[in-house]
Every structure is written in C-alpha cells, then in structure tokens.
Design a protein around this nucleic acid. Sequence first.
DNA 1: TCGTGTAGTTGCATTATAAAACCAGATGCT
DNA 2: AGCATCTGGTTTTATAATGCAACTACACGA
Lengths: 159, 159
Amino acid sequence: MVKRTSLEGAECPIARSLDAIGDWWSLLIIRDALLGRRRFGEFQKSLGLAKNILTVRLRTLVDKGILKTAPASDGSAYQEYVPTPKGRGVFPILVALRQWSEEFDRHPEQIATILVDRDSGRPVRKLELYSQEGRLLIPANTTLKPRPRPAKRRRIVSA
Amino acid sequence: MVKRTSLEGAECPIARSLDAIGDWWSLLIIRDALLGRRRFGEFQKSLGLAKNILTVRLRTLVDKGILKTAPASDGSAYQEYVPTPKGRGVFPILVALRQWSEEFDRHPEQIATILVDRDSGRPVRKLELYSQEGRLLIPANTTLKPRPRPAKRRRIVSA
DNA sequence: TCGTGTAGTTGCATTATAAAACCAGATGCT
DNA sequence: AGCATCTGGTTTTATAATGCAACTACACGA
C-alpha cells in the first residue's frame, strides 16, 4: 500500500481514531487484551496472525499508550501486555462493532458469543446516545459543530 | 499482504464487523455518506483517496448492503451512493470512535468538530451501555456467554 | 462540435502484510 | 550440569493491497 496515506493530523476525530487503531489487527488485539489475554503467545494463538506482525502491532500499541508492558505476574521472567486506561476506553468501540454485527450480519447464526450483564446474565441493551438533558438521541437529532476555541487557560505549564 | 487473513466466518462478531468495514477507508466513506455525501467525486475530493481504490470500496460496500446505488436525484444522469439501514446502523460505531478520540487523543486541539444535540446545540453525552433492567453498565459488569442455540423456528423457508 | 467535468479503468511502482525459517535466552527435566 | 523445549521474538522472502498517473467513455454546456 504505498505509504498508506497517514490520517495523523486529520481534523476528524473518527479519522484520528482509525489512524491509531483502524488497521487490520489492532482492534482484535485490544479485544483480546480486554478479555484478559496478556502474553505474546496468547495473542498469537488466539488470533492466528504472523508473529512478526504481532511484534510490530504490540510495539505500536504500546507506543500509542494503549497497552503497556509489565514485567511478569506469573513468576516467569517474561513480559506482559496490559491495557492502559486509554486501552480500556476502546471498550465502547468494540461493543458498537459487536452490536452492528449482531443486528445486521447476514449470518448471525455464526456468531458464537453474546455480551451479557454479569449480574443478571441477560443480554445488554443497545448502546444509547443521550443529550446532556437526558433525551435519547437518534442520528437525525445530532449534528456537527465546529469545536469552540480552546478556551484560553491561564498559565498553562507549557505543553 | 499475502492473502490478508480474511476474518469472514469468524465466530467473534467484532471480527465479523471488522471483516466488513475494518479496512482503511470503508468507515470514512460511510461517515461521509452519513453526512450526506452521495457522489463519487464528493467522496474522492473529501477523502483524497485514489479513484481506483474508491471504485473498489464503493462496489464492496454496495455488495455488502451498506450502501446502495440510486439513479440520479439532481437531474444529471449519474449515479449516487446512499446508505441503507445497515449503513445507517454504523452510526454508533462512528460515535464511539469519535468519543474515543475526544477522550484519549494526545492532540485533541486538532479535532475540528464536535457532535451536538441538534435541538440544544450542546455536546452529546458519552455512549452508555445499559442492562435490560436499565442499570448503567461498566465493562467489568459485563461478560461473554455462548450464544444460545438458534431457538429452532418452525418451517423455516429454507435459507 | 469542441471543451470540460464526472466516473471510472488500466498499468505500473511501492509497501504493508504474511508465511516460514531462524535464533537467543529462559525454563524444565534428569 | 547437560539437553531439549518453550517463549518471544527477528530475518528473509513472497505476494497482494494500495497509490499515482495516465487513459477512456460518456454526459453536458456553449
């Protein structure tokens, strides 16, 4: 892919997210990490991707602050990859992807798992978007506005 | 990329979604479509991607039932690409991607737009996940269960 | 009918991805 | 200690996805 047109610096936040995690494997790696997988070998076995790719992806995810490496945990002198808060913040994206598949996939019978409320064991509701005042919003009820100027803060400690 | 490991037929719904719209451009094309862009040239100008790629992507999106072609609308004898319900169903994914960027991006000042409630003009709340009973769920309150057997329906009209 | 714009298609260059082989260090067994 | 094995990669080689640019076909307007 010739230089893959980096979207870094795009002004659309969607493009910016995709630039970070929009490649072929990152979201699946993060999914696995949020499911508790930690070790190189676990990811590799679970995803079935080439190890060299996994190496690069993990490094990139660490660089972007989505995963961080931790020294051990189970005694052995190896390394683990654990999600940071930024990584955990991907959860709603994964839920949205999951629900889209559940709703529109042509072969939903091939879907093996459902996301349930841990307490009741019952499926969760669809993600919902609310206004500040608590009204449920549909897409047509939303619109885009230019972002307000950064509201000049005083005495920023550099940056 | 040697065969790009198709995720079609994966049993994880996230993987299935990514297989459909997880490539480098599809989500941005859908974003544009949901913003009202319809014509080949509009997409091409807005996204700045190569025309041959756009051709392939549009065709794929139509094949997958995410966009459909419509004959005209503005008089000229050209074609338009409009989102289907399945395409409109991508909206929550886009919102989730947007909010992730808004919350975790290292340079949020580069983000140009915010999603607002059309009526009040105020930013929307974060996407929320609820249980059937209406309790707000955090990731730790959710878990995955195997999908229940397809609940044998009677007299399926083949498939 | 000539020029211009739209909507592609085709050909070629480049690079990201993949599969497979290779390897160093840690671990485990005896 | 000695040897095999496992883990977590790196290297090598190939191939397909992407991109750029040039070309085509058709519609439209003057």
